Amino acid sequence: MSISSLEREPLVAIDRLTKRYPAAAGGFGKPKAWVNAVNGVSFEIRSGETLGLVGESGCGKSTTGQLLARLLEPTSGSIRFRGRELATLRGREIRDMRKHIQLIFQDPYASLNPRHTIGSILEEPLRVHRIGSSAERRQQARDMLEIVGLDRSYAARYPHELSGGQRQRIGIARALMLRPSFVVADEPVSALDVSVQSQILNLLKELQRRFALTTLFVSHDLNVVQYMSDRVAVMYLGTLVELAPAETLFRSAVHPYTRALISAIPSVRDGERRERIVLRGEVPSPLHPPAGCPFHTRCPQAVAECALVPPEWKSVGPDHYARCLLT
Rank of each mutant, 00 (worst) to 15 (best):
C324W: 04
A307S: 12
A307K: 05
Q301F: 09
L308V: 14
R298F: 00
R298H: 00
D319M: 11
L308Y: 07
E305A: 08
L326Q: 06
C324M: 10
E312Y: 06
R323I: 09
P300K: 04
T327F: 14
P310W: 05
R323W: 06
V316R: 08
G317H: 01
P318Q: 05
C299Y: 03
A322H: 03
E312S: 15
A307P: 00
A304C: 04
A307C: 03
Y321I: 08
A322N: 04
W313I: 13
K314W: 01
S315K: 14
L325Y: 07
A304K: 07
E305Q: 12
A302I: 00
A322C: 09
C306I: 02
V309W: 01
G317L: 05
E312V: 15
W313T: 13
A322V: 09
C324P: 00
Y321L: 15
C324N: 02
V316M: 07
C306Q: 00
G317S: 02
V309G: 06
V303I: 11
H320S: 07
A307L: 03
P311K: 08
L325C: 11
A304E: 08
P300C: 08
L308I: 15
K314A: 09
K314D: 02
P311G: 13
L326H: 10
D319C: 10
L308R: 12
A304G: 03
P300S: 07
P311S: 09
T327D: 05
E305L: 14
A307Q: 03
